[in-house]
Design a protein around this nucleic acid. Structure first.
Length: 317
DNA sequence: AACAAGACCAACCGCCCGGCA
DNA sequence: TTGCCGGGCGGTTGGTCTTGT
Protein backbone atom coordinates (compact mmCIF):
# COMPACT_ATOMS: atom_id res chain seq x y z
CA UNK A 1 0.00 0.00 0.00
CA UNK A 2 1.59 3.23 -1.12
CA UNK A 3 1.43 6.42 0.81
CA UNK A 4 -1.20 9.01 0.16
CA UNK A 5 -0.29 11.64 -2.41
CA UNK A 6 0.81 15.00 -1.06
CA UNK A 7 -1.97 16.76 -2.90
CA UNK A 8 -5.01 16.13 -5.00
CA UNK A 9 -3.45 15.35 -8.34
CA UNK A 10 -6.68 16.00 -10.16
CA UNK A 11 -7.09 19.56 -9.02
CA UNK A 12 -3.53 20.83 -9.29
CA UNK A 13 -2.02 22.28 -12.39
CA UNK A 14 0.99 20.57 -13.90
CA UNK A 15 3.48 21.44 -16.56
CA UNK A 16 5.47 24.57 -17.26
CA UNK A 17 5.00 27.59 -15.02
CA UNK A 18 3.53 30.75 -16.46
CA UNK A 19 5.05 34.14 -15.69
CA UNK A 20 1.93 34.96 -13.74
CA UNK A 21 2.37 31.94 -11.52
CA UNK A 22 6.03 32.76 -11.09
CA UNK A 23 5.31 36.28 -9.93
CA UNK A 24 2.57 35.08 -7.58
CA UNK A 25 4.91 32.63 -5.95
CA UNK A 26 7.81 35.04 -5.85
CA UNK A 27 5.74 37.85 -4.42
CA UNK A 28 4.24 35.63 -1.78
CA UNK A 29 7.55 34.19 -0.59
CA UNK A 30 9.23 37.58 -0.59
CA UNK A 31 6.43 38.96 1.55
CA UNK A 32 5.66 36.08 3.86
CA UNK A 33 8.39 33.51 3.39
CA UNK A 34 7.60 29.83 3.03
CA UNK A 35 6.24 29.59 6.53
CA UNK A 36 7.96 26.26 6.76
CA UNK A 37 5.04 24.62 5.06
CA UNK A 38 5.20 24.15 1.35
CA UNK A 39 2.05 22.06 1.21
CA UNK A 40 -0.09 24.91 2.51
CA UNK A 41 1.73 27.59 0.54
CA UNK A 42 0.08 27.29 -2.88
CA UNK A 43 -3.38 27.81 -1.46
CA UNK A 44 -2.26 30.85 0.51
CA UNK A 45 -0.48 32.23 -2.53
CA UNK A 46 -3.47 31.61 -4.75
CA UNK A 47 -1.78 28.98 -6.86
CA UNK A 48 -3.29 25.80 -8.19
CA UNK A 49 -0.06 23.94 -7.78
CA UNK A 50 1.27 21.14 -5.66
CA UNK A 51 3.38 22.34 -2.74
CA UNK A 52 6.29 20.30 -3.93
CA UNK A 53 6.03 21.87 -7.33
CA UNK A 54 6.15 25.33 -5.74
CA UNK A 55 9.16 24.40 -3.69
CA UNK A 56 10.98 23.10 -6.74
CA UNK A 57 10.10 26.14 -8.79
CA UNK A 58 11.37 28.44 -6.08
CA UNK A 59 14.57 26.55 -5.38
CA UNK A 60 15.50 25.87 -8.96
CA UNK A 61 14.40 29.01 -10.66
CA UNK A 62 12.91 31.86 -8.67
CA UNK A 63 15.05 32.28 -5.61
CA UNK A 64 17.62 35.08 -5.67
CA UNK A 65 21.19 34.61 -6.85
CA UNK A 66 20.44 31.66 -9.07
CA UNK A 67 23.11 31.25 -11.69
CA UNK A 68 22.04 30.06 -15.09
CA UNK A 69 24.12 29.39 -18.14
CA UNK A 70 27.43 27.76 -18.88
CA UNK A 71 29.49 26.12 -16.22
CA UNK A 72 33.05 27.28 -15.84
CA UNK A 73 36.09 25.00 -15.93
CA UNK A 74 36.44 25.56 -12.24
CA UNK A 75 32.91 24.37 -11.68
CA UNK A 76 33.61 21.37 -13.91
CA UNK A 77 36.55 20.49 -11.73
CA UNK A 78 34.58 20.78 -8.56
CA UNK A 79 31.77 18.65 -9.89
CA UNK A 80 34.15 15.97 -11.11
CA UNK A 81 36.06 15.92 -7.91
CA UNK A 82 33.00 15.68 -5.76
CA UNK A 83 31.28 13.19 -8.01
CA UNK A 84 34.30 10.96 -7.78
CA UNK A 85 34.26 11.33 -4.04
CA UNK A 86 30.64 11.13 -3.08
CA UNK A 87 28.79 10.04 -6.18
CA UNK A 88 25.54 11.50 -7.33
CA UNK A 89 24.78 13.47 -4.22
CA UNK A 90 23.75 16.46 -6.26
CA UNK A 91 22.53 18.55 -3.39
CA UNK A 92 25.85 18.23 -1.64
CA UNK A 93 27.72 19.07 -4.81
CA UNK A 94 25.40 22.01 -5.37
CA UNK A 95 26.20 23.27 -1.90
CA UNK A 96 29.76 23.79 -3.06
CA UNK A 97 28.70 25.75 -6.09
CA UNK A 98 26.89 28.88 -4.96
CA UNK A 99 24.08 29.81 -7.28
CA UNK A 100 23.84 26.38 -8.84
CA UNK A 101 21.04 24.00 -8.07
CA UNK A 102 21.21 20.27 -7.69
CA UNK A 103 18.90 19.94 -10.67
CA UNK A 104 21.17 22.12 -12.77
CA UNK A 105 24.22 20.13 -11.87
CA UNK A 106 22.45 16.85 -12.40
CA UNK A 107 21.31 17.94 -15.83
CA UNK A 108 24.72 19.31 -16.66
CA UNK A 109 26.40 16.10 -15.64
CA UNK A 110 23.97 13.89 -17.52
CA UNK A 111 23.96 15.90 -20.70
CA UNK A 112 27.41 17.40 -20.99
CA UNK A 113 30.02 16.62 -18.43
CA UNK A 114 29.64 12.87 -18.72
CA UNK A 115 30.09 13.14 -22.45
CA UNK A 116 33.05 15.38 -21.95
CA UNK A 117 34.64 12.66 -19.86
CA UNK A 118 33.84 10.12 -22.51
CA UNK A 119 35.44 12.25 -25.18
CA UNK A 120 38.51 12.75 -23.05
CA UNK A 121 38.73 9.05 -22.40
CA UNK A 122 38.95 8.40 -26.12
CA UNK A 123 41.81 10.82 -26.47
CA UNK A 124 43.45 9.53 -23.37
CA UNK A 125 43.10 5.93 -24.46
CA UNK A 126 44.77 6.62 -27.74
CA UNK A 127 47.65 8.30 -26.02
CA UNK A 128 47.92 5.61 -23.36
CA UNK A 129 49.27 8.03 -20.87
CA UNK A 130 49.52 6.80 -17.34
CA UNK A 131 47.38 8.56 -14.82
CA UNK A 132 48.91 11.28 -12.74
CA UNK A 133 48.52 9.16 -9.67
CA UNK A 134 49.18 7.08 -7.68
CA UNK A 135 52.81 7.94 -7.26
CA UNK A 136 53.90 4.37 -6.68
CA UNK A 137 52.67 0.85 -7.12
CA UNK A 138 50.41 1.40 -4.23
CA UNK A 139 46.80 2.18 -4.62
CA UNK A 140 45.91 5.81 -4.64
CA UNK A 141 44.98 7.87 -1.70
CA UNK A 142 41.44 8.91 -1.83
CA UNK A 143 40.47 12.55 -1.94
CA UNK A 144 37.86 12.18 0.73
CA UNK A 145 40.56 13.33 3.05
CA UNK A 146 39.96 16.68 1.50
CA UNK A 147 36.34 16.52 2.51
CA UNK A 148 36.69 15.12 5.97
CA UNK A 149 39.07 15.90 8.68
CA UNK A 150 40.15 13.07 10.86
CA UNK A 151 39.19 13.14 14.47
CA UNK A 152 40.60 11.15 17.35
CA UNK A 153 41.28 7.46 17.02
CA UNK A 154 39.49 5.27 19.51
CA UNK A 155 40.64 1.93 20.73
CA UNK A 156 38.25 -0.80 21.77
CA UNK A 157 38.72 -4.43 22.78
CA UNK A 158 37.93 -5.49 19.25
CA UNK A 159 39.93 -2.96 17.34
CA UNK A 160 40.54 0.67 16.79
CA UNK A 161 38.64 3.16 14.79
CA UNK A 162 38.91 6.75 13.84
CA UNK A 163 36.16 9.20 13.42
CA UNK A 164 35.79 11.73 10.72
CA UNK A 165 34.07 15.00 10.67
CA UNK A 166 33.00 16.84 7.56
CA UNK A 167 34.94 19.93 6.73
CA UNK A 168 32.97 23.07 7.11
CA UNK A 169 32.32 24.92 3.88
CA UNK A 170 35.02 27.36 4.84
CA UNK A 171 37.49 24.58 5.39
CA UNK A 172 36.33 22.57 2.45
CA UNK A 173 36.23 25.04 -0.33
CA UNK A 174 39.90 25.90 -0.49
CA UNK A 175 40.71 22.23 -0.82
CA UNK A 176 37.96 21.46 -3.23
CA UNK A 177 38.79 24.48 -5.25
CA UNK A 178 42.41 23.58 -5.38
CA UNK A 179 43.50 23.79 -8.94
CA UNK A 180 46.76 22.05 -9.23
CA UNK A 181 46.38 20.61 -12.67
CA UNK A 182 45.52 17.13 -11.58
CA UNK A 183 48.49 16.57 -9.45
CA UNK A 184 48.65 15.76 -5.82
CA UNK A 185 48.01 18.99 -4.05
CA UNK A 186 49.33 17.64 -0.84
CA UNK A 187 49.94 14.22 0.54
CA UNK A 188 46.46 14.07 1.81
CA UNK A 189 44.33 15.86 -0.69
CA UNK A 190 43.67 15.36 -4.32
CA UNK A 191 41.33 17.09 -6.62
CA UNK A 192 39.87 15.32 -9.59
CA UNK A 193 39.67 17.12 -12.83
CA UNK A 194 37.85 15.61 -15.78
CA UNK A 195 41.24 14.55 -17.07
CA UNK A 196 42.39 12.94 -13.88
CA UNK A 197 39.09 11.22 -13.44
CA UNK A 198 39.31 9.65 -16.85
CA UNK A 199 42.87 8.52 -16.23
CA UNK A 200 41.94 7.17 -12.91
CA UNK A 201 38.98 5.22 -14.17
CA UNK A 202 41.01 3.76 -16.97
CA UNK A 203 43.82 2.53 -14.86
CA UNK A 204 42.04 1.67 -11.68
CA UNK A 205 38.83 -0.02 -12.66
CA UNK A 206 36.22 -1.11 -10.18
CA UNK A 207 37.17 -4.24 -8.41
CA UNK A 208 34.08 -6.38 -8.16
CA UNK A 209 31.49 -4.01 -6.90
CA UNK A 210 33.59 -1.50 -5.17
CA UNK A 211 36.69 0.53 -5.46
CA UNK A 212 39.38 0.23 -2.92
CA UNK A 213 41.71 2.96 -2.03
CA UNK A 214 44.47 3.00 0.45
CA UNK A 215 47.92 2.13 1.45
CA UNK A 216 49.35 -1.29 0.93
CA UNK A 217 51.24 -1.01 4.12
CA UNK A 218 49.55 -2.22 7.21
CA UNK A 219 49.31 0.71 9.45
CA UNK A 220 47.13 2.11 12.11
CA UNK A 221 45.18 5.20 11.38
CA UNK A 222 47.27 8.19 11.99
CA UNK A 223 46.14 11.26 13.75
CA UNK A 224 47.92 13.75 11.61
CA UNK A 225 45.79 12.93 8.61
CA UNK A 226 48.75 12.55 6.37
CA UNK A 227 48.98 8.82 6.19
CA UNK A 228 45.46 7.60 6.60
CA UNK A 229 43.71 6.18 3.65
CA UNK A 230 40.07 5.56 3.35
CA UNK A 231 38.66 2.48 1.80
CA UNK A 232 35.01 2.19 1.21
CA UNK A 233 32.48 0.68 -1.03
CA UNK A 234 30.09 -2.12 -0.36
CA UNK A 235 28.87 -2.57 3.13
CA UNK A 236 31.55 -3.97 5.33
CA UNK A 237 30.79 -7.36 6.73
CA UNK A 238 32.21 -8.77 9.88
CA UNK A 239 34.55 -11.07 8.04
CA UNK A 240 36.04 -8.15 6.22
CA UNK A 241 37.07 -6.66 9.47
CA UNK A 242 39.56 -9.37 10.11
CA UNK A 243 41.58 -8.14 7.19
CA UNK A 244 41.85 -4.69 8.53
CA UNK A 245 43.58 -3.22 11.43
CA UNK A 246 41.37 -0.27 11.84
CA UNK A 247 37.82 0.26 10.89
CA UNK A 248 35.19 2.89 11.16
CA UNK A 249 32.63 2.38 13.82
CA UNK A 250 30.65 5.37 14.75
CA UNK A 251 31.22 8.86 13.60
CA UNK A 252 29.63 10.50 16.55
CA UNK A 253 26.91 11.92 14.42
CA UNK A 254 24.52 9.09 14.84
CA UNK A 255 25.45 6.78 12.04
CA UNK A 256 27.61 3.73 11.67
CA UNK A 257 30.56 4.25 9.45
CA UNK A 258 31.26 1.67 6.84
CA UNK A 259 34.72 2.69 5.80
CA UNK A 260 38.00 1.30 6.80
CA UNK A 261 41.30 2.81 7.59
CA UNK A 262 44.37 1.07 6.27
CA UNK A 263 44.22 -2.40 4.94
CA UNK A 264 45.52 -5.88 5.11
CA UNK A 265 46.09 -8.32 2.32
CA UNK A 266 43.35 -7.36 -0.08
CA UNK A 267 45.13 -4.30 -1.24
CA UNK A 268 47.92 -6.43 -2.59
CA UNK A 269 45.56 -7.76 -5.19
CA UNK A 270 45.82 -4.48 -6.96
CA UNK A 271 47.89 -4.96 -9.98
CA UNK A 272 50.75 -2.74 -10.93
CA UNK A 273 49.84 -3.33 -14.49
CA UNK A 274 47.21 -0.90 -15.54
CA UNK A 275 44.07 -2.34 -16.93
CA UNK A 276 42.24 0.05 -19.14
CA UNK A 277 38.64 0.65 -18.42
CA UNK A 278 36.56 0.01 -21.45
CA UNK A 279 34.52 3.10 -22.14
CA UNK A 280 32.81 1.40 -25.00
CA UNK A 281 30.75 -0.40 -22.43
CA UNK A 282 27.54 1.05 -21.25
CA UNK A 283 27.90 4.48 -19.86
CA UNK A 284 26.25 3.23 -16.74
CA UNK A 285 29.44 1.38 -16.01
CA UNK A 286 31.15 4.69 -15.71
CA UNK A 287 28.66 5.94 -13.23
CA UNK A 288 28.70 2.69 -11.35
CA UNK A 289 32.43 2.72 -11.30
CA UNK A 290 32.68 6.14 -9.83
CA UNK A 291 29.74 5.99 -7.55
CA UNK A 292 30.42 2.50 -6.28
CA UNK A 293 33.12 4.02 -4.20
CA UNK A 294 30.66 5.98 -2.25
CA UNK A 295 27.06 5.01 -2.51
CA UNK A 296 27.11 2.34 0.08
CA UNK A 297 29.22 4.08 2.53
CA UNK A 298 30.30 7.59 2.84
CA UNK A 299 27.23 9.02 1.28
CA UNK A 300 24.98 7.43 3.81
CA UNK A 301 27.18 7.36 6.76
CA UNK A 302 30.19 9.56 6.63
CA UNK A 303 28.37 12.67 5.84
CA UNK A 304 26.57 14.46 8.53
CA UNK A 305 23.29 15.08 6.81
CA UNK A 306 22.32 17.80 9.22
CA UNK A 307 25.42 19.75 8.52
CA UNK A 308 24.96 19.18 4.85
CA UNK A 309 21.50 20.52 5.15
CA UNK A 310 22.81 23.64 6.76
CA UNK A 311 25.08 24.21 3.84
CA UNK A 312 22.33 23.62 1.35
CA UNK A 313 19.99 25.91 3.17
CA UNK A 314 22.68 28.53 3.33
CA UNK A 315 22.78 28.70 -0.38
CA UNK A 316 19.10 28.30 -0.89
CA UNK A 317 17.97 31.17 1.22
C1' DA B 1 11.84 23.77 -46.59
C1' DA B 2 10.69 19.73 -44.18
C1' DC B 3 11.61 16.14 -41.43
C1' DA B 4 14.31 13.27 -38.08
C1' DA B 5 17.45 12.73 -34.52
C1' DG B 6 19.76 14.34 -30.78
C1' DA B 7 20.46 17.62 -27.02
C1' DC B 8 18.83 20.13 -23.40
C1' DC B 9 16.37 21.20 -19.28
C1' DA B 10 12.21 22.10 -16.44
C1' DA B 11 9.25 19.53 -14.00
C1' DC B 12 7.38 15.36 -12.09
C1' DC B 13 7.51 10.97 -9.48
C1' DG B 14 8.20 8.24 -5.76
C1' DC B 15 11.13 6.91 -2.07
C1' DC B 16 13.47 7.99 2.24
C1' DC B 17 14.03 10.23 6.50
C1' DG B 18 13.26 13.14 10.46
C1' DG B 19 10.01 15.52 13.34
C1' DC B 20 6.13 15.27 15.90
C1' DA B 21 1.81 13.90 18.06
C1' DT C 1 6.86 3.06 20.28
C1' DT C 2 4.31 3.82 16.33
C1' DG C 3 2.34 5.97 12.52
C1' DC C 4 1.56 10.07 9.94
C1' DC C 5 3.11 14.06 7.50
C1' DG C 6 6.03 17.15 5.09
C1' DG C 7 10.56 18.18 3.27
C1' DG C 8 14.28 16.75 0.63
C1' DC C 9 16.47 14.12 -2.71
C1' DG C 10 17.85 11.38 -6.91
C1' DG C 11 16.06 9.36 -10.98
C1' DT C 12 13.22 9.86 -14.85
C1' DT C 13 10.12 11.89 -18.19
C1' DG C 14 8.53 14.64 -21.75
C1' DG C 15 8.31 19.00 -24.11
C1' DT C 16 11.06 22.25 -26.64
C1' DC C 17 14.99 23.66 -29.10
C1' DT C 18 18.90 22.80 -32.16
C1' DT C 19 21.38 20.51 -35.58
C1' DG C 20 21.94 17.52 -39.40
C1' DT C 21 20.28 15.43 -43.67
Amino acid sequence: MGRAPCCDKASVKKGPWSTEEDSKLKDYIEKFGTGGNWIALPQKAGLKRCGKSCRLRWLNYLRPNIKHGDFTDEEDRIICSLFASIGSRWSIIAAQLPGRTDNDIKNYWNTKLKKKLMAMSMTSQSQRKPPPFPPSHQTPSFPLSSLYKECPTYYTPTGSFSTFEPMSPVQLQPNVLNNDNATMATNSSFVHTPESLVSYMQYYPAKENFLMFGSGEPSCSSSDGSSSHISYGREIKQEDMTNFQGFGANNGYGGDLKFMLSHGKDVNQWSEKPSVYNFDKDLEDVKRLISSSSNNCCSDNLIDENKTEEKVMYYYY
